[in-house]
């Protein structure tokens, strides 16, 4: 039985779990930064001037219409080649920020490139989900707020946005799930996340089936948990009247 053979030795399981840890940490950082950036872009598009709107729309169109793999190649291989060499050098040197209770380490360039690429990608999609949410709020709501004497920005901030976020929440969770899956592409730029770890375990043990099998289960588990969590939050946040 060359397929299963013995179970993976503990040290390879540790590799896979370390890779999974990086996948989770990267996903969490990307979801957080992507949400902030995406919602900021979305708001800018609603209340900003024409130039800002065009810039946001252009950014979103560009990011959403090119493959993430190509974007990661651009961030890792191309941007580093285009930046002035002094800056690349600085980005590549390890910097440590001592916080007293612990030190913050500057991430390796592949982590940085992966984070930036994934965050912009997630932000572009989240911005669109946010916009769909805003479009889902009935215009009468905004008109009523304006009639009550709120400024357009106040009406947006207090009336439209909270409802829009409630509508957009589940689609945004969908983007979080995509982010978890998308982190697998960073293995092509040398980031040691779960897919990378599974290929490394395969290289050393040749237990292809187990290496990919465990990685697949971990991905599915993470995606299922986040989805369930997102839905639970949505149920709790739903206004009392709308509860089924």
């Amino acid at each position: 039985m060359s397929l299963f053979g013995d179970l993976l030795a503990p040290r390879y399981l540790v590799w896979l779990l370390q890779g999974f840890g990086i996948t989770l940490a990267l996903s969490a950082a990307v979801c957080l930064a992507g949400t902030v950036l995406g919602l900021a872009a979305c708001c800018l598009r609603e209340v900003g001037g024409p130039a800002a709107r065009r810039a946001v729309a252009g950014f979103i169109g560009l990011v959403r219409n090119t493959p993430l793999l190509v974007q990661l190649f651009v961030w890792y291989f191309a941007v580093a080649a285009l930046l002035p060499s002094g800056l690349t050098g600085w980005l590549n040197t390890p910097h440590t920020l001592d916080l007293g209770f612990g030190a913050l380490h500057w991430p390796a360039y592949e982590t940085l490139a992966g984070f930036v690429g994934l965050t912009l990608y997630a932000a572009a999609y989240i911005a669109e989900e946010g916009r769909a949410g805003i479009n889902g709020v009935r215009p009468a709501q905004r008109e009523a707020a304006l009639a009550l004497g709120l400024t357009p920005i106040q009406a947006f901030r207090h009336i439209v946005l909270p409802q829009a976020l409630r509508i957009a929440w589940l689609p945004i969770v969908g983007q979080y799930l995509n982010t978890i899956k998308n982190t697998s592409l960073t293995m092509t730029i040398g980031l040691a996340e779960l897919s990378y770890a599974s290929r490394q375990v395969e290289t050393e043990t040749f237990k292809t089936f187990q290496a990919f099998g465990i990685a697949t289960l971990l991905y599915i588990g993470a995606v299922a948990l986040v989805e369930a969590g997102g839905q639970a939050l949505a149920r709790r946040a739903a206004p009392a009247g709308s509860r089924a």
Binding site: Y76, F77, A80, T88, N92, G190
Partner: peptide, 8 residues
């Protein structure tokens, strides 16, 4: 090699 050339 590209990573080497870029200093990564």
């Amino acid at each position: 090699f590209t990573a080497l050339r870029n200093g990564n």
